[in-house]
Amino acid sequence: MGWLSGPTVAMILLAIGTTALIVRKDLVIKLLALGLVNSSGILFLISIRFQPAMEAPILPAKVGSPIADPLPHALVLSAIVINFAILALSLVFVMLLVERYHSTDCGRIEHAVETEEATLGSQNLAAEPSGTDARKVPR
């Protein structure tokens, strides 16, 4: 099982997450896949300079045993909190989209936006040729 190291598992998770991110059309599942990609990044960074015999980077360590490199740990530490905040923010955006288009399917939402813009564009062309607020959609 020597090949099953942290970076390898991280890359497998990255592959699963990227595939789901591209293939699945549901926005919530896309966010879950993004979380998987994020976790794979964290796992990759904390395991890239670590071997099973190593101690945690807290001094004084046991004499003779090497300690893990603390720099990647410090880099990803706050990523967990940022992850939570970004997930909350993107969920809010998904909620706004669902409230307006009543679907979490990104294909359907794109289609709805396109038809909306097309109808609005034709209306504006007929009503006022300037069309300054063609993008402004009434709620």
Binding site: T8, M11, T18
Partner: peptide, 14 residues
């Protein structure tokens, strides 16, 4: 495309 890209990335790292 997704699977190929991901596998390429995994291969490089492994």
């Amino acid at each position: 495309l997704a699977v190929a890209l991901s596998l390429a990335a995994s291969g490089i790292v492994i």
